[in-house]
Design a protein around this nucleic acid. Structure first.
Lengths: 205, 205
DNA sequence: GTCTATATCACGATAGAC
DNA sequence: GTCTATCGTGATATAGAC
């Protein structure tokens, strides 16, 4: 089954878009993310979607265009909600608890998108650059980190934004890899507290 | 430039293998890892290697065979040396210091191979299974972790092998991603001590 | 809004000369 | 040990009917 919990809900629930277009988007996401973009032929997409190849080209200018249209909602999703919701937490422990839970949920919900994005970013310099800009030019991040340092005295004031991002992404990413990709089923409670502990160790002095 | 520091030294320095075969292996590694396996045509490999397509098929049964022959040394390399060398460290700090330095060096030296492996593992269930077996059935790991728990009283005896691997891979992987993929140039000394601190926090009670 | 039928071309792979 | 020349297939993409 394809995961489309967050990044496509609105578009796919919009009744105005044709049934064929929806089916193509879902089939393409499944095949691109699990078999790879270049390994997936338009013929396979058509079969999986139960439509003809002509239908694909009715709604998408090319196979590349279909890929772009699939990825764009994820980029929007990556920025939204998350950063804004960080300001409400008054202790470092509560903040980290939220981040771990929220980002693991996000990764699980969008796992097919993330696999696809990962594959493409590894081989497409343009997409890599776009992604870099999204992270580094995003002054929101810098400001959020500054506010953290003021709010939570435990945080090492010498940490760079890069180091902060790394301290958070490392433990979360490794756990997500084990659970979502290698199908590891662990004891959520103790695993989460280990992840939290590791993140806080990377942030504090 | 292609990275071939460890995983291919012996084979490529062997003077008995034909010049054309060497050139094909190097060109294929570069193109497969940076453009993707399916996006790379045999024609492009031939051009990059400065040989004809027939030369490729003289030495490799198929394009898939070429990929397999490229990846196999990495699997051997992944197992060798590393585990055995872990027993000589008498403090947890010294052990973790070695692991961080050694694995980051390994990743940097084999980065093209790792990018290629990553792409293929994301889309090839057989390769994923092979990789899983390499890790889980590898009883060496379990034994090494057991010996750690006996040797270093700081280590949480309740940690599962999965949690131990995660505690180590997370911080190292995130740093490797930032440096080798996003070209981040940091202060090695303070970065390394942060990584170490985070790993030890994930291992100790 | 979706289909059948088809154009075009590049891909992986091979035969056989040198 | 390497090349030129070529084959068959299946890929993306389109025209036009319903």
């Amino acid at each position: 089954m394809v995961q489309v919990i967050s990044a496509y809900e609105k578009e796919l629930n919009n009744e105005k878009i044709p049934a064929g277009k929806k089916k193509v988007l879902l089939a393409a996401l499944d095949l691109f993310s699990n078999k790879g973009f270049h390994a997936t032929t338009t013929s396979k997409i058509a079969k999986a979607a139960g439509v003809s190849e002509a239908t694909i080209y009715k709604y998408f200018q090319s196979k590349d265009d279909l890929l772009k249209k699939l990825l764009s909602p994820l980029f929007i999703e990556l920025q939204q909600d998350f950063i804004g919701s960080l300001s409400q937490y008054q202790t470092l422990d509560a903040l980290v608890t939220f981040i771990v839970k929220d980002r693991l949920k996000f990764i699980k919900a969008n796992f097919d998108f993330i696999k696809l994005l990962l594959q493409e970013i590894l081989t497409d310099p343009k997409l890599l650059q776009y992604f870099k800009d999204l992270i580094s030019k995003e002054t929101d991040f810098i400001n959020v980190f500054k506010s953290w340092k003021q709010k939570f005295s435990e945080i090492d004031p010498n940490l760079t934004p890069i180091a902060i991002i790394r301290a958070i992404i490392g433990p979360i990413g490794a756990f997500a890899l084990q659970t979502d990709f290698f199908n590891y089923q662990g004891d959520t409670t103790s695993d989460y507290s280990l992840i939290k502990k590791q993140i806080i160790a990377g942030l504090t002095n």
